[in-house]
Amino acid sequence: MPEPRTFRDEPVSFVRRSGRMSEAQERAFEELSGHYLLDVPRAIASTSVHADARLDVAAEYRRDAALIVEIGSGQGHAIVSAAAARPEDDFLAIEVFRAGLARTMLDADKAGVRNLRLVEANAPEVLATYLPEASASEVWVFFSDPWHKKRHTKRRLIRDGFGATAARALADGGLLRLATDWEDYALQMREVLDAEPLFERAFEGEWGDRFDGRAMTAFERKGITKGREIRDLTYRRKPRA
């Protein structure tokens, strides 16, 4: 008798649709994934992370350096640019869409970037268990899906509980950087993180300044062209007791 299907307890912030990759993207997975893409043990889904899996950061990057983690790296424009500009730091891109992962690997290889790794997985699971506690210097969440329809807002990444999950992965004093072009989501982000006792604001006033380490992408330009305000927020991880 087949075992019953098992589902995640919490809704994920993405809907993973299958799509064909170009020949170049297919080649990227064959030729470049050995260096860039982490081999993650799975649990109940192809984007899950087994609860016992742990990343040995120093062994993977072959050094001790600050680790910057981007959630939802998309095509990789922001993180490849940052990794190229900051060779003294290490970077980890979390993404579930294979075409985006392939594009990221292609661009990273073209730019000669070697301080970047990618993980094809659900971000909260990476933060909650796969990364060692206090291993990240920064966590970036730039333009995550706003799920603007009311019936879908439960899928938003930044919701109750996310702060504690991100705080686990961040070192004391580490920064959580967020940006969105969706006003309602920006307000929710601020409300959720203002209420999180493990974080404090690292900005003054209503909104933070634009993070100058974030490369301007086509996605951000599109939001500006449509007249949407880009909202930046930065929170600092409070010291552990």
Score class of each variant (00 low, 15 high):
173 G>Q: 09
157 L>E: 02
127 L>P: 02
220 E>V: 02
79 I>M: 01
128 A>D: 13
48 S>H: 05
77 H>S: 12
56 D>S: 04
140 W>G: 00
176 L>D: 04
79 I>F: 02
75 Q>N: 15
134 A>T: 08
58 A>W: 03
225 T>N: 15
39 D>N: 10
131 L>Q: 08
202 A>H: 06
231 R>D: 07
104 T>V: 09
178 L>M: 03
191 E>D: 12
124 P>Y: 06
233 L>C: 02
4 P>M: 11
203 F>Y: 07
151 R>I: 07
20 R>H: 15
116 L>G: 00
18 S>K: 14
84 A>D: 11
99 A>D: 15
27 R>A: 15
157 L>H: 04
67 L>M: 02
189 M>S: 01
78 A>N: 08
174 G>D: 00
143 F>Y: 05
64 D>Y: 12
173 G>P: 01
197 P>A: 07
188 Q>P: 06
149 K>E: 11
225 T>L: 14
184 D>A: 14
224 I>P: 09
128 A>C: 13
53 A>Q: 00
166 A>G: 05
137 S>W: 05
153 T>K: 12
109 D>S: 10
140 W>C: 04
21 M>N: 07
56 D>E: 04
143 F>Q: 02
32 L>W: 07
147 W>I: 07
178 L>G: 00
110 K>I: 12
64 D>T: 13
209 D>G: 13
116 L>T: 03
100 G>Q: 07
134 A>K: 03
49 V>P: 00
234 T>H: 07
17 R>L: 13
21 M>H: 09
187 L>Q: 07
51 A>E: 15
155 R>N: 12
192 V>M: 06
63 R>Y: 05
147 W>P: 04
183 E>V: 11
15 V>G: 12
53 A>T: 09
59 A>T: 06
1 M>Q: 15
15 V>E: 15
155 R>W: 14
239 P>L: 08
36 Y>T: 04
161 G>C: 06
142 F>N: 12
43 A>Y: 14
195 A>E: 11
146 P>W: 06
130 Y>T: 01
157 L>F: 13
220 E>Y: 07
79 I>H: 00
5 R>A: 15
112 G>R: 06
173 G>S: 08
139 V>G: 00
34 G>H: 13
202 A>W: 07
120 E>S: 13
221 R>G: 15
167 A>Q: 01
109 D>N: 12
175 L>V: 01
148 H>Y: 15
139 V>A: 02
13 S>L: 10
135 S>V: 00
119 V>Y: 01
37 L>G: 00
102 A>P: 04
